[in-house]
């Protein structure tokens, strides 16, 4: 049961990673990162069946942090949209070289 959960978690994590690598829309990218975080959460929950409840506590912590992260991330994306009129990452190229 645990190993199946871990495999699902790994698959989810990889899907998230691939999403980050292939997409250019900042919001989609951010959603993929959230997917990665939640994949890890799944691992934590599964592992805490093996090692006790520390993993579950960590999941709560991660969810809290992810919420804060989402608030900041979306605010930043709005700020970018205001300046550039787009949320396409590949068109943010003022800083380079």
């Amino acid at each position: 049961m645990i190993s199946e959960a871990l495999v699902v978690s790994a698959v989810l994590f990889v899907i998230g990673t691939i999403g980050v690598l292939t997409r250019k829309n900042a919001i989609v990218l951010f959603m993929c990162v959230e997917l990665m975080l939640n994949a890890v959460n799944l691992s934590f929950v599964a592992l805490s069946k093996l090692h006790g409840n520390a993993g579950q506590v960590f999941v709560i912590l991660v969810m809290t942090v992810a919420a804060a992260e989402a608030a900041i991330g979306l605010a930043l994306v709005i700020a970018v949209f205001r300046h550039f009129g787009t949320v396409d990452l590949s068109s943010l190229r003022l800083l380079k070289g």
Binding site: V40, S43, L76, L89
Partner: peptide, 23 residues
């Protein structure tokens, strides 16, 4: 704004790896 969003997305991406590593 551009710097912040780049920093944020790359930072969150790397945090995911760190977190998975921790798990």
């Amino acid at each position: 704004a551009e710097a912040a969003v780049k920093y944020f997305l790359l930072g969150a991406f790397s945090t995911a790896f760190l977190l998975y590593g921790i798990a």
